[in-house]
């Protein structure tokens, strides 16, 4: 219904089609674009940046979060630094990235990693610190080795927090990758949007914006699904009992 209203507004030139083209025209344009290789290449470039950004952030943030979360001393020592760096907008680093990297994959991945690491680090840390003391006492009373405690007790118990952290980090990674593509000119959907704007191809620009939105929705859905499966034992996923 909303789409129909927009279509009508655009067709009747209630809103100038230069700004807001009719959805049908956008759809036609993007379908035509999909026949070309560069369309799929842009999507692959963006997804590769997203995956690398999220993956590297996870490799840094999860082990660091476990370390920080399981030692009061390390927690206190790192807290002021993390509390200060976390709210720093990673886009502030764009000029530095301009200088250090060529307009390629590395620059946008750097931005994505910087931005995605903090939420994941903080969530991991919370998760580890919030493990029920009795769950650890139980493990300790059975002389369970440190390695097994980490993988069978600490991590599963922190999993709800980790999942939240990953979901946020995924969104942030996608945002920063597209930012990098628009501002730095690294190849991907962001660059395609910008080029369409420069070429005054309004329908195409909207088409790519839609694609970016669809990627966002899709990745959200994937994470929500994985979360449901991995946390089926968690109270939030099982409704009642106890």
């Amino acid at each position: 219904m909303v789409l129909a209203v927009i279509e009508l507004a655009a067709r009747t030139e209630l809103i100038p089609s230069r700004f807001l083209p009719p959805p049908t025209a956008v759809a036609v344009r993007i379908v035509a674009e999909a026949a070309q290789g560069r369309f799929w290449l842009a999507i692959v470039d963006t997804l590769a940046g997203w995956a690398l950004g999220l993956g590297i952030a996870a490799l840094i943030a999860i082990p660091a979060g476990i370390l920080i979360g399981s030692s009061e001393f390390v927690y206190r020592a790192t807290r002021p630094i993390i509390e200060f760096l976390r709210p720093v907008p990673s886009v502030a680093l764009i000029p530095l990235v301009f200088l250090l990297f060529s307009p390629s994959l590395e620059g946008k991945v750097f931005l994505a990693v910087f931005a995605a690491t903090w939420p994941l680090l903080v969530q991991t840390q919370y998760g580890i610190r919030n493990v029920l003391p009795l769950q650890l006492d139980t493990a300790r009373s059975f002389q369970i080795s440190r390695h097994r405690v980490i993988f069978r007790v600490l991590l599963p118990s922190a999993l709800p927090y980790l999942a939240t952290g990953l979901r946020i980090a995924s969104t942030v990674s996608l945002i920063l990758v597209i930012t990098g593509e628009i501002v730095l000119g690294a190849p991907g959907i962001g660059k395609a949007i910008n080029e369409a704007r420069e070429g005054a191809a309004v329908e195409l620009m909207y088409g790519y914006v839609l694609i970016a939105g669809m990627l966002g929705v899709m990745l959200n859905a994937v994470f929500a699904g994985v979360e449901r499966r991995a946390l089926h034992w968690h109270a939030s996923q099982r409704g009642t009992t106890t």
Binding site: L132, L134, S141, F142, Q143, R152
Partner: peptide
């Protein structure tokens, strides 16, 4: 430290059993 000769059963079973493990896995875990 906790010796191998001793096993504990706590009052708060809902916290001392791990909710992410099945019954058999919980029993096997130690």
């Amino acid at each position: 430290k906790p010796p191998l000769e001793i096993a504990l059963v706590f009052q708060d079973y809902s916290a001392s059993l791990y909710p992410w493990m099945r019954v058999a896995e919980n029993v096997r875990f130690p």
